[in-house]
Design a protein around this nucleic acid. Structure first.
Length: 430
RNA sequence: GGAGAGAUGUCAGAGUGGCCGAAUGAGCACGCUUGGAAAGCGUGUGUACAGCAAUGUACCGAGGGUUCGAAUCCCUCUCUCUCCGCCA
């Protein structure tokens, strides 16, 4: 969440910044305006209540003393009974204001970093650079390539679980595993991330810590009868590993990579990418997470971005780097770079990794703090990104490595992970 | 799934209604001592909110209740541990 103190000292600047991402900061009942008034209200009520409590504590002590000495304290008792009632009333009001304030603040998105370009949506994103030379010949869609090779089975996915699920077979399943292995090795051995393995179920607090809740509950799979959810990304459990901790400044930066399955209801994307493996309810992803000193956030973002890009380059997949405009920024992000891989069948670049700096937004929510020598605890900055989405990487390989005879070559870097297999071919029909 | 025990500060651990934000010990920091170290001695050592500050308020797993007053009494929940059952 955004800094509560800054809310008071810097409100107008924040308002301007939030406006850029399309947030309503004008309407009196907007989350933003509500948080401003509730903040003032809450502090007012609390301060009144605290005054009464100080009075009560003082007199209560006197009552204790008097009783001990066998003196009469009925006058004090009576007046305190009244004070007690008033305090209780004020406390209830203050609590209400605080709960409402917290909700408003938890639903307020992050402030875009000043280096984020203006713009309303995807079309205003700024392309930074391109890598590789995209093929321009006609290539079938990955679902046709995969089904023809017998490595992708969408009907089976539908039968087992429903739409937006798929089944991988043979070399397809093997490639899924190989990609996970390949990416984790690279990040753990070369890029300096400590590998972690985490639960794919997270409770409400954890989901709130990284920003998925309270606002986006509809996008999550919730477990029946429990206040727990399937994770939409490993960012959630990995970042929250440090929830409610005060770290020592010398421990930073902390860098973790993890592979998990990810689960998304795709509630708002009915009709988009319904065919194929681009948008599934369940997919594998290797995630990169860094916890850093707030001064290092943007440097770390570049660092992490280079690690994600290194995977695409190792697999020799053409991509471009895009700087998301303010209007296209995710809820918790202060700045985001997307890596988009070339998909020849669609003749376009499609997102395969999203690398963001969250500033101290998640650190504040999740209570992840650090202390510098002799200083007060302050929230860490968090950075994360996909490194990469496995399913989309496979899609990119199928299409970019497709050969006119229907076969698909295996990227050189991946061959060792596939028992030296160089090419996926149709099984000769008997 | 069944039965029992427990949750206190960095850690260990005391505390059953006021003198408790919390004994004691350990750890850590600083100082004294020492040729140096150990020991010893002394001082300090949580977080959050409000305030320029003095200070005030809250926090003893979480939430609620009783009371003038709760770490302490009552209720609900969560988690941990032990035993039994089941099990990759």
């Amino acid at each position: 969440m955004i800094d509560r103190k800054a809310l008071r000292t810097d409100a107008s600047a924040m308002e301007e910044a939030l406006k850029k991402r399309g947030e309503d900061v004008v309407a009196p009942d907007s989350t933003w305006k509500k948080s401003l008034t509730l903040d003032a209200q809450q502090r007012q009520l609390k301060s009144e209540s605290e005054k009464l409590q100080a009075e009560r504590n003082k007199v209560s002590k006197i009552i204790g003393l008097k009783k001990k000495n066998g003196e009469d304290a009925s006058a004090e008792l009576q007046s305190m009974a009244e004070v007690g009632k008033q305090t209780k009333l004020l406390d209830i009001k203050a609590k209400e204001a605080e709960v409402a304030f917290n909700l408003a603040l938890l639903e307020t998105p992050n402030i875009p970093h000043e280096s984020v370009p203006d713009g309303q949506d995807e079309s205003d994103n700024a392309e930074i650079r391109r890598w590789g030379s995209p093929r321009t010949d006609t290539v079938p869609a990955h679902w046709d390539i995969g089904e023809d090779l017998g490595i992708l089975d969408f009907d089976a996915g539908v039968k087992l679980a429903g739409s937006r699920f798929s089944v991988l077979k043979g070399a397809g399943a093997r490639m899924e595993r190989a990609l996970i292995q390949f990416m984790l090795d690279k990040h753990a051995d070369v890029h300096g991330y400590e590998e972690v393995w985490v639960p794919v179920i997270a409770n409400r607090k954890t989901m709130t810590g990284t920003g998925q809740l309270p606002k986006f509950e509809d996008d999550l799979y919730r477990l029946e009868g429990e206040d727990a959810f399937l994770i939409p990304t490993a960012e959630v459990p990995v970042t929250n590993l440090y929830q409610d901790m005060i770290l020592d400044a010398t421990q930073l930066p902390i860098k973790h990579c993890a592979h998990t399955s990810c689960f998304r209801r795709e509630a708002g994307s009915a009709g988009r990418d319904t065919r194929g493996m681009i948008r599934q309810h369940q997919f594998d992803k290797v995630e990169l997470v860094q916890l850093v000193h707030p001064d290092q956030a943007l440097t770390a973002l570049d660092d992490l971005l280079s690690h994600a890009a290194a995977i695409l380059e190792a697999l020799e997949l053409p991509y471009r780097l895009v700087n998301l405009c303010a209007g296209d920024l995710g809820f918790s992000a202060e700045k985001t770079f997307d890596l988009e891989v070339w998909l020849p069948s669609q003749n376009t670049y499609r997102e395969i990794s999203s690398c963001s700096s969250f500033g101290q937004f998640q650190g504040r929510r999740a209570g992840i703090r650090f202390r510098e020598e002799g200083g007060k605890p302050q929230a860490v900055a968090t950075i994360n990104g996909s490194g990469l989405a496995i399913g989309r990487t496979m899609v990119a390989i199928l299409e970019n490595y497709w050969q006119a005879d229907g076969s698909v070559n295996i990227p050189l870097a991946l061959q060792p992970y596939m028992a030296g297999l160089q090419k996926i071919q149709t099984k000769p029909t008997a």
